Amino acid sequence: MAKTTIRKSPIRKKSSKKRQSFFLLKFIVVSVLFLALVFGIYHYRNAILYYFSFKSDKVLKDDKIAQARIHQILDKYKDLTIGMDVSQYQGKINWEEVDSVENKFPLKFVLIRATAGNNKEDSQFDSNWKGAKKNNFIRGAYHYYRPNENSIEQADNFIKTVKLKIGDLPPVLDIEKLPENQSIDSLKVGLRRWLKKVDQHYKVKPIIYTGERYYNDFLKDEFSEYTFWVANYNFFVENIENDWQFWQFTEKARINGINENVDLNIYNGTPKMLLYLTIE
């Protein structure tokens, strides 16, 4: 009886298509990242060379690319008006040393946190308020609004703390957070109550500070009669929008006389135009 021969099925080689697809995808990702890096270096080439040339009189502790962006934007808008904003988080400031960014871009104005909520006074407000005036900055005071606290009490807190004078900027309402236990409509009512009371007291319409998303989603249309100070730190945003009177574009600036990082701002106009905004 003949033996039955069992044929073994040929071993199939693993398909190379998946492997080829994987390497193709990897190549594309690496190529995109490389091109993005090259574009970034090319785009910020002058600013990067500036910082790596050791023209700065201090060691840069922050990310050099972030500092290059700051330099790039300030150089682009050197004909506009550059300023900063400070609070107790910057610590004790030596105002006699504060005058510019990298000894190249003069600082013309400073916005100073005065109060927060219905009972908080910034611990450095009095010192910053006097120091800014003594060193000839155009100064302004802002209130950090807490959505879950009474708006009139918050306005009273600001009013009792801040004594504005001729040449100061209008009062500023800083709104950044959404309420926890009320609707957006109720929040807007509270904001208007604060704005109205402060307006009546100082006889000048306040400025509103907020983030770009908050501005676009909740405030832009219904509060269009107010001047806006808008924050956007996006690395790829380098242009100030026409409807932003002030643009806070970074929180990583280094300023002589201040030990901590500082927020920088651009006023969308010349220094002379900024004077027209001040209290007469």
Rank of each mutant, 00 (worst) to 15 (best):
L169H: 08
K134A: 15
N148F: 06
E121I: 14
R193D: 15
N118M: 13
I175H: 07
Y145M: 13
Y226G: 00
E149Y: 05
N148R: 00
I207Q: 01
Y214T: 09
I208K: 03
Y209E: 08
L219P: 09
Y142V: 11
K160C: 08
N150Q: 05
A114F: 09
F218S: 05
V189Y: 04
I152W: 07
L187Q: 02
P206M: 06
L178F: 06
K188Q: 08
R146V: 08
Y145P: 04
Q154N: 02
V189A: 04
N119K: 15
P179Q: 00
Q154L: 07
V204T: 15
Y202M: 10
V172P: 06
R213Y: 11
A116Q: 13
T115P: 09
L178R: 10
I138T: 12
G117V: 01
K120V: 15
I184Q: 02
P179W: 00
N216H: 12
D174E: 13
D217K: 12
L195G: 05
T115Y: 11
K134S: 14
T161C: 10
I175L: 13
D126H: 04
W194L: 04
T227E: 08
T161P: 12
D217S: 07
R213K: 14
P170I: 04
R213I: 15
N216T: 11
F223V: 00
V204P: 08
P179S: 01
L169S: 09
E222N: 10
A116D: 11
A114Y: 08
D221Y: 13
L173W: 06
D156F: 04
S224W: 00
I152Q: 11
G190K: 03
N119Y: 14
Q124W: 12
K120T: 14
Y202H: 14
Y214R: 05
I208L: 09
D199C: 00
A141I: 02
S186V: 10
N136S: 13
T161A: 14
K133V: 02
